[in-house]
Nucleic acid binder design. Structure first.
Lengths: 94, 94
DNA sequence: CATGCCCGTGATACTAATACCGGTATAAGT
DNA sequence: ACTTATACCGGTATTAGTATCACGGGCATG
């Protein structure tokens, strides 16, 4: 085995991640946010639709900056095991 | 052209990113942190050495969680436009 | 009514990230 | 001195992210 073929959990997490970005986008157009983040609109669309479940780190950084949201909040919202009670969890595997 | 072949700036940013992770790792062993993050030691090594300049978002999330550091701080430290003078920058672009 | 523009979408092409395996070097323990 | 452990480095294989191309739907304008 040379590469983990993305587990269904990662796919689901990617969908949550995309839904979060789409919700944060609100009424703004896809091309507007994509241009602000410096990525192509198609890439943003794939991330939002969950077809790119694990985008590059700096791509997410640019998108979060364009949307004005925190990376920690973004990551915490996509964590499958946390319920938001304490917010102190770790070692969850990629 | 279908994909941006990673600019030298992104390479340099990846090196800063890796140096930051290594500094955060401290005296802990590479395999320990990698296991805690759920990634292979080789992957962590490549990220630290800058040979993987733009790792996956959740890989960084897992590493940051294993190292106990904030993603926002990590992203801000890798920003190329800030020199650490004020720490008040909002520029973006990937 | 035809045309062009904006938006979102699907298919395709290409590069990069992840993982595994071999070997090598240095430091520590026995 | 030998072995063990950690880290570095080369190559290889496979999946996945990103960008360009081409298409259809909706709305405004001529």
């Amino acid at each position: 085995m040379v590469r983990t073929p993305l587990t269904p959990e990662e796919r689901a997490r990617g969908e949550r991640f995309g839904a979060l970005l789409r919700a944060a986008r609100g009424d703004r157009s896809m091309v507007d946010v994509a241009a602000a983040a410096g990525v192509s609109a198609e890439t943003l669309r794939k991330i939002e639709t969950g077809r790119a479940p694990t985008p590059a780190f700096f791509t997410v950084v640019a998108l979060a900056a364009a949307l004005g949201m925190s990376l920690d909040v973004l990551a915490a919202a996509c964590a499958p095991d946390e319920g938001g009670a304490d917010g102190q969890e770790q070692a969850l595997s990629a």
